[in-house]
């Protein structure tokens, strides 16, 4: 039976379920315990599961991520929270040079069943050091699975699938999604590697993920009012990509717009665009278009930040130009 909750509550319920159902699971990160998590996603977990399993760490990203790798190698199922992906850069070496490649480099002898969660994205007026969308960078790494739950349902159930993976999984939670309300079927078990069609349509495929999904759906609603039926695809898993699902959509609609909050250059949107070009070029009626962030460190001032980020209006405009034939 579906229940209504916020994305934040869904993350918390997922963490509680993980801690409850597997003795090997531990949660560690800055302020996950006493404080209850920077985004309140772990409130109450310290009280329920105790300080052995819910561990406040010092501000030492490189070390607690590395310790997560070691604990995973040693037989635990750690869930490491990095407050935001901006601070994950301090742990980049552990993720890139250690977690991601351990299986391969050891000739398949060792695996790192580690889940790392982090908040990402802009839109909260917190300026250039707190607003980045780095999931596309991590999605370049062979050896990791990258998830971007965009719905409350996925926030609730994707962690379950992530913990079944024998290799590292990175989960990106867009900061603007935490207060979003949605319906959840607690029992639903969805394949974490499948993309999802969030809105069917015949005229154009809008391919997106994470915090850009609500904006893209809003744009699709506006377009529908003007007679353009957009299909909205939520990638869900950024590595490996569910390429067949979006290619199939593009083959039906013959048009594609990729919406990605990261910067244009070298983005996941660029990768998707290349995949469409390679594998569905002759099905296209128009060049693939992208709506990404302006190539600027996110400014503090609200009007500038809004102008830098992909907005529903820009998605709408891009689709209309494409439909009009000069996109």
């Amino acid at each position: 039976m579906p229940t209504t909750m916020t994305y934040r509550e869904a993350v918390r319920a997922a963490l509680a379920e993980a801690l409850r159902s597997d003795e090997r699971v531990l949660l560690m990160g800055e302020d996950v315990g006493r404080y209850g998590g920077a985004f309140a996603c772990s409130r109450g977990l310290l009280e329920e599961f105790g300080p052995e399993r819910v561990r406040d760490t010092p501000l030492s990203e490189a070390t607690f991520v590395g310790a997560g790798i070691g604990a995973a190698l040693g037989g635990m199922r750690p869930i490491v929270e990095i407050m935001t992906c901006n601070f994950a850069l301090l742990a980049l070496d552990q993720i890139v040079n250690h977690a991601a490649i351990m299986r391969h480099m050891s000739g398949g002898q060792f695996s790192v069943p580690l889940v790392i969660r982090m908040a990402s994205g802009g839109g909260r007026r917190v300026a250039a050091q707190h607003s980045n969308s780095f999931e596309g960078w991590f999605a370049r790494l062979p050896g990791v699975t990258v998830l971007a739950p965009a719905t409350v349902q996925d926030a609730r159930t994707m962690l379950r699938g992530a913990l079944r993976e024998p290799d590292p999984v990175l989960i990106f939670e867009h900061i603007l999604l935490y207060p979003v309300q949605g319906e959840v079927d607690e029992q639903a078990d969805t394949d974490i590697r499948r993309a999802a069609v969030r809105r069917p349509g015949r005229d154009v495929s809008l391919i997106t993920y994470g915090g850009s999904l609500p904006k893209t759906l809003a744009a699709a609603e506006q377009l529908a009012a003007e007679g353009i039926e957009a299909e909205v695809i939520d990638l869900r898993c950024l590595r490996p990509l569910d390429t067949e699902l979006f290619l199939d959509s593009v083959r039906r609609t013959h048009r594609a717009v990729v919406v990605d909050e990261a910067w244009y250059t070298g983005s996941l949107a660029a990768e998707i665009s290349a995949l469409i070009m390679e594998r569905a070029f002759y099905d296209l009626d128009a060049p693939v278009a992208r709506v990404c962030s302006a190539e600027v460190p996110l400014p503090y001032a609200g009007h500038l930040e809004d102008a830098a980020l992909p907005q529903a209006a820009a998605i709408e405009r891009t689709v209309k130009e494409m439909m009009a034939g000069h996109g």
């Binding site: 007026r125 917190v126 250039a128 050091q129 707190h130 460190p297 503090y300 001032a301 609200g302 500038l304």
Partner: peptide, 16 residues
């Protein structure tokens, strides 16, 4: 306030 007469021209805000 995020204004252009701010010491970081509104790009930084309180933290920068």
């Amino acid at each position: 306030f995020g204004k252009a007469n701010g010491c970081s021209r509104g790009r930084g805000g309180s933290m920068h």
